[in-house]
Design a protein around this nucleic acid. Structure first.
Lengths: 114, 114
DNA sequence: TGACATACATCGGTCATCTATGTATAATAT
DNA sequence: ATATTATACATAGATGACCGATGTATGTCA
């Protein structure tokens, strides 16, 4: 069973930027990689990813370009920009802080052996 | 600066149930406790909390009752039910899994020294 | 040549939070 | 006295983010 929608909501941009920090990738590939790396916990939909990528590009966080694959097929790749890396830093720190605080509340209330 | 709205979205129910697992509490108190325990990272609004409490009660996850405080003022307290505890178990496990996977992706992409 | 996986794209609906607003009471200050 | 602030609960409407559905197009394989 995949994760609740609302939980995913706040972290998709962080996840996408994280993937792109590794190197340029195309949309379909990102969906597959995210699923693989999370043991299918993250099953990002195309209807979610593409609008995010377009928005990030409009903000200058990523830059897209077309390139032909080995099979002669053209794909749309995305590369992260310096502004994108900066946003990634912010998002990663925000996530770190947030998850730390959630754990503080949850663990503080429900003793470990629950 | 408080945490991004979307990040909060998926975890408010978990946080509320966690607080109530400790003992019965009233609304205003929960907001204050959440802020205190998270070093003001969580600043839940009344417009967010009360609808959540009402929904949880309708589902039988919590039970409300009125009680007079020392100062003669009446407050509406909430107590978690067995069904509420069960939901808390599920939500806590979901959170654990989710945060683990996010960290796996983020850390896998952005080397520690980022 | 039909079926399927790949690959990109967009629209509309749903759902959760926040902002704003309203009510009421107790405590405090002027 | 009375104005202000903190406490305390409540709801309606706006916003924002994801997903489901759908559409297009191409390469591969039987």
């Amino acid at each position: 069973m995949p994760i609740d929608k609302a939980l995913m909501a706040g972290s998709t941009t962080l996840l996408v930027l994280s993937l792109l920090a590794e190197g340029e990738k195309y949309g379909y590939q990102m969906i597959a990689e995210l699923a693989r790396r999370s043991d299918n916990t993250f099953q990002l939909k195309e209807g979610t990813l593409y609008p995010i990528l377009h928005a990030l590009e409009k903000e200058g966080r990523v830059k897209s370009f077309r390139r032909e694959a080995e099979n002669g097929r053209e794909r749309k790749y995305y590369r992260i920009t310096p502004a994108g890396l900066a946003l990634l830093q912010d998002k990663a720190e925000e996530w770190r802080l947030f998850s730390e605080k959630v754990n503080a509340v949850v663990q503080g209330c429900t003793p470990v052996g629950a």
